[in-house]
Simulated scan of single mutants.
Amino acid sequence: MNSLIVETKNLGFSYGKSGKDIQGMDLRVPQGSIYGFLGPNGSGKSTTIRLILGLLKKHEGEVAMFGAPMESRTRLTNLSKVGTLIENPSLYGHLSALENLRIAAKYRGKITEERIFEVLEIVKLAHVGSKKVKAFSLGMKQRLGLAIALLSNPELLILDEPTNGLDPKGIIEMRTLIKELNTKYGTTVFVSSHLLSEIEKTCSHVGIIRDGKMLYQDTVTALKNAKGDQLQVALEVDKFIDALAVLETQGVKLVENEDGMLLVEIGCKSDIATLIDGLRTKDVAVYQVVIKNSLEDLFLTLTEN
């Protein structure tokens, strides 16, 4: 995963004369990765996607896809290798899933009937291929939109808020599909989302932006380690005084008493078991253990003003 499937250098863009909506954006999406693109509402995620796809004309900087500059002479070739799902797909509700796919296939050209049935299998909709789309759940519609994006067997899949509005079952289904497309078919996936827990569970790489600027870009693992070697853990216990005595004995640092829970710092995950064993030895019941160094915690730390 050394080569970059998407790369921007010093990318800049503004909708108006005052200020810049995208400033000096250096985006690097490794081939074969699942790249999570995170940022608060209005941070420039959708604008960046439009610039990458050439739907907006950049004001400065460079955009490259598949190692080739995104220019008028290369744009169609580059986009032929890309599938996109931008929020809720536009579908014909009075038609079946198969009929929707056949219409989309005509626009793309050179899409076989075999490929249409194949993408239905991939998104787990083969059993409802003849069903009218108006009877689909939102999750099923999202998966059909994903099937349309997969018709041309793209090397890069760009998903803008693919789980927006989905219920927990639909979110899990979409997460599973994204992982399967990456591991089974080798598709590079670029996911813009505000659901941080899903990015943490799904993505290998992450880019975090605010006000059109890249704040952090690396692997998800590196981001979690960016706060240093200390791991913050919140503990819910029944005997605070006895628990504090155990913390002092074990040399564990108490950060604060947070919402009725003890927030402590330890060296690594294996120290959690040692700490819990020590608490139990002193008859301190542990009701809950929460690791606080999640992607969500780190995201909020990076993006807070």
Score class of each variant (00 low, 15 high):
115 R>N: 03
17 K>E: 10
304 E>Q: 15
8 T>I: 12
293 N>S: 06
21 D>A: 14
124 K>N: 15
198 E>N: 08
144 L>I: 04
54 G>W: 07
195 L>H: 06
45 K>H: 09
133 V>R: 04
269 K>L: 15
114 E>H: 10
277 D>I: 00
53 L>W: 09
141 K>M: 11
237 V>D: 11
41 N>T: 08
34 I>Q: 02
263 L>H: 00
63 V>D: 09
300 L>S: 04
143 R>I: 03
60 E>C: 09
271 D>Y: 03
19 G>R: 07
22 I>P: 09
213 K>D: 02
272 I>E: 12
52 I>L: 15
146 L>S: 12
113 E>M: 10
26 D>E: 10
231 L>W: 13
4 L>G: 01
275 L>D: 07
33 S>R: 10
132 K>E: 14
273 A>Q: 13
85 L>D: 04
42 G>R: 09
299 F>N: 04
16 G>H: 05
244 L>C: 09
299 F>R: 04
278 G>I: 07
138 L>M: 14
25 M>A: 08
288 Q>G: 10
118 E>N: 01
158 I>A: 05
36 G>I: 09
170 G>P: 06
83 G>Q: 04
16 G>C: 04
203 C>A: 15
152 S>W: 00
189 V>A: 06
157 L>E: 01
87 E>I: 11
150 L>V: 02
54 G>P: 02
145 G>A: 07
104 A>H: 13
227 K>D: 07
141 K>N: 08
271 D>R: 14
126 A>F: 05
136 F>L: 01
58 K>N: 01
56 L>N: 05
91 L>Y: 11
176 T>S: 14
14 S>F: 05
104 A>Y: 13
125 L>P: 02
141 K>A: 05
88 N>V: 07
10 N>Y: 01
65 M>I: 14
202 T>I: 15
221 T>D: 12
79 L>W: 01
21 D>V: 12
91 L>Q: 07
115 R>M: 11
206 V>T: 08
27 L>M: 12
18 S>M: 07
155 E>T: 00
41 N>S: 12
4 L>D: 04
104 A>N: 12
245 A>S: 14
226 A>P: 00
127 H>C: 01
140 M>G: 01
2 N>C: 03
200 E>W: 02
24 G>D: 15
58 K>R: 14
58 K>V: 10
132 K>H: 11
71 E>L: 10
249 T>F: 00
153 N>M: 03
18 S>D: 11
52 I>R: 05
123 V>E: 08
211 D>M: 05
92 Y>A: 08
200 E>D: 15
257 N>D: 08
38 L>P: 02
42 G>S: 09
62 E>W: 08
96 S>E: 08
31 Q>K: 14
212 G>D: 07
10 N>P: 00
226 A>R: 13
37 F>R: 00
144 L>K: 05
191 V>K: 02
142 Q>W: 09
53 L>R: 12
168 P>W: 12
4 L>H: 02
178 I>P: 07
180 E>W: 01
116 I>L: 10
77 T>R: 14
131 K>L: 08
130 S>Q: 14
203 C>D: 02
281 T>K: 15
119 V>K: 10
124 K>I: 00
60 E>T: 07
83 G>W: 03
